[in-house]
Simulated assay, not measured.
Amino acid sequence: MSKVFVSAKLPAITITKLENANINTTVYSGNTLISQAELLSSVTDIDFLITALSTKVDQEVIDNAPNLKIIANFGAGFNNIDIEYAKQKGILVTNTPLVSTNSVAEVTIGLLLALSHRIVEGDALMRADGFPGWSPLYFLGHEIAGQRLGIVGMGSIGRDVAKKARAMSMDVQYWQPHQLSDPEERSLGVHYVSFEQLINTSDFISINAPQTKTNFHQFNQDVFKQMKSTASIINVGRGPIIDEKALLKALQDKTIAGAALDVYEHEPNIEDGLADLKNVIITPHIGNATVEARDAMGTIVADNVVAVFKNELPKYIVNK
């Protein structure tokens, strides 16, 4: 009987679909992230692996699973998997794109609003000391209407962020390695600029890009110095795109005004000192943490495993 190992607790719909297809299903039952040692011991006789974005699937794991046919990654990203080595071994790797677009875009806008109106800072104040009462110049923030948002990465999430930001009267510019077509830009109401112009002129910068071989520490000490001192940065893309040590210094020195992070360079750990700053919002990678998005992701990984089980081609192969 074919076997699948699920390396994290997933929505019930995932397990139901696998069991309905008569696939022998084992789910990691621990309350913490699965260790590499336990993962290695769990894959020795499996045919299919469903794994969370937080789980590293390297050459050692792949070599320990000689019967493996597919690695179905529960996440839009796949930098946790050695996809090239999997390809060499004839193993398909899939991801779950698109279904989390709206959720991540909503979180991006939520973080932007929370920064500009100091919502998290205000909540902490009320829970600690309270406030002395309303007065005209007390606890001022900024409206986002008329502010310039610079988006790094105009995939499906970046485009949805742009639509939502335009609906709130923001001026939206973007940068990525390849410019969108003129009709796409006009449809979104955005304009393309160089990376230098984006970091020099944006009031808010939103990182909505995947991690690539070329954007490690794209936002470093030199880049922060080029940003407006009143600007804030939001990262819901991938943690290593920002040099967190450089970000900490930029925030401490008031080189930039604020930051909101949902992903981290050394996730799940964050740079010591960031949590102590009032001008930083930190959230536990909740970009697509909605019932709707996670159920849709769970459906995709299960359907992809079932497809391979039936000798059919799965969707969203990332290592063709």
Rank of each mutant, 00 (worst) to 15 (best):
M1R: 15
M1W: 12
V6K: 09
S7Y: 07
K9F: 04
K9E: 06
L10F: 12
A12M: 06
I15G: 08
E19L: 09
T26Q: 15
T26Y: 11
S29R: 09
S35G: 08
S42H: 00
T51E: 11
S54M: 12
E60L: 12
I62V: 08
D63G: 06
K69I: 10
A76W: 01
N80D: 10
Q88F: 03
K89R: 15
K89W: 10
I91A: 08
I91D: 01
I91R: 10
I91H: 04
N95M: 06
T96S: 11
T96H: 07
L98T: 06
S103D: 02
S103K: 00
V107L: 15
T108D: 11
T108Y: 05
G110A: 04
G110K: 09
L111A: 02
S116T: 02
R118N: 13
I119W: 03
D123T: 08
A124V: 08
G130R: 14
G130P: 06
F131E: 11
P132G: 15
G133I: 15
P136C: 05
L137C: 08
L137P: 03
L137T: 15
G141C: 07
G141F: 03
H142W: 00
I144W: 00
I144Q: 02
A145C: 11
G146R: 06
Q147C: 01
G150F: 02
I151Q: 03
V152A: 07
M154S: 11
R159C: 09
V161L: 11
M168D: 01
P177K: 14
S181M: 06
S187G: 04
Y192P: 06
V193S: 01
V193F: 00
E196F: 00
N200R: 14
I207C: 11
P210W: 06
N215C: 02
N215T: 00
F219M: 13
Q226R: 13
Q226Y: 06
K228Q: 11
K228F: 00
A231T: 07
N235F: 07
N235Q: 06
G237L: 08
G237R: 09
I241Y: 04
A246V: 13
L247Q: 13
L248F: 09
G258P: 04
A260M: 02
Y264V: 11
E267S: 05
E267L: 01
I270R: 02
E271C: 12
D272H: 07
L274S: 11
A275S: 14
D276V: 03
L277Y: 05
K278Q: 14
N279I: 02
V280Q: 00
I281R: 05
I282C: 10
T283K: 10
P284S: 12
I286R: 00
G287R: 00
N288E: 11
G298L: 08
A302C: 03
V306Q: 05
K310F: 03
K310Q: 14
L313E: 13
K315T: 07
V318N: 13
N319S: 12
